[in-house]
């Protein structure tokens, strides 16, 4: 058991809970319709910094910290290149949908994406299809995140997998139930800051440990010259296509969450 890690994990969880409780106070005075608005949307009043950090925390999921580095390790720069194609998704979705969604969602009094589609298409089947696909795809995406989170806790603390999954599930459930969207947005903000800072420290530490960027590149080229090309470890279009498919799967969840956010958070 790795005591410093367990202690910092514990402090982090307590902090997250505290934020959840604190932000749930604004729910107490709200009733009925305004409770729903407050719970799901945080009263539609979230600032730019919170939105930015929420988006970092949304994009930066288990796949960017556990799966992504693994693929980057085997495929080299080709993977990083394709990951960078996601830069566009954030501003693209927000610029196209943001304003219109914000206006129309208020007109329809929509709280969720489903409400919005209901108001827009007035069709039972659109609503049912959307609801089912969100449940199915979000469920599978969430399952992957939960496994990722549990594996992370397992490998850091030395607890067994089931216990780790239990800790992860309970903490997620507690703060979603008590706090609503505002709590999620605030804890996302804290996590976004932690992720950003942590990644920065890791980057610097990695460059120092590898003996400078030039040295790392030389090692990579010596290992397999294809690692520094945009084509992936095996070179050629076949491996390109494989990376691309992997990446698209990840991208899709980003697109979804971003458009969801542009309906909710703004």
């Amino acid at each position: 058991m790795n005591t410093p890690v367990v202690i910092s994990l514990f402090i982090f969880l307590v902090l997250i809970f505290a934020i959840g409780f604190w932000s749930s106070r604004s729910l107490k005075n709200a009733t009925g319709d305004s409770f729903l608005q407050e719970y799901f949307l945080g009263g539609r009043q979230l600032g730019g910094f919170i939105l930015a950090m929420t988006m970092i925390a949304t994009y930066g999921s288990a796949s960017s910290f556990i799966g992504g580095p693994g693929v980057a390790y085997t495929e080299g720069f080709g993977w990083v290149l394709l990951s960078m194609s996601q830069v566009a998704t954030g501003y693209f979705v927000l610029m196209i949908l943001g304003k219109k969604f914000a206006i129309m969602a208020r007109r329809y009094k929509a709280v969720t994406l489903i409400d919005y589609l209901k108001g827009r298409y007035q069709s039972k089947w659109v609503v049912l299809t959307a609801a089912f696909s969100i449940i199915i795809f979000l469920f599978s995406a969430m399952a992957a995140q939960w496994v990722g989170g549990a594996r992370l806790i397992e490998s850091l603390t030395g607890l067994n997998y089931t216990t780790a999954l239990f800790i992860f599930a309970v903490s997620v459930l507690v703060y979603v139930i008590i706090g609503g969207f505002k709590a999620v947005a605030l804890t996302d903000t804290v996590q976004g800051v932690v992720m950003f800072g942590g990644t920065l420290i890791l980057l610097i530490a990695t460059i120092i440990a590898g003996g400078g960027i030039g040295n790392i590149m030389a090692d990579l080229t010596a290992e397999n010259p294809n690692l520094v090309t945009p084509y992936g470890a095996e070179g050629g279009t076949e491996s390109d296509l494989r990376i691309f498919l992997l990446d698209t799967c990840r991208c899709r969840s980003c697109w979804f969450t971003t458009s969801n956010r542009s309906c909710d958070g703004l």
Partner: peptide, 14 residues
Amino acid sequence: PDNYSYVFGLPAWF
């Protein structure tokens, strides 16, 4: 890769 140039140690294309 033999003909790559490097900027700040990174491959120029990257």
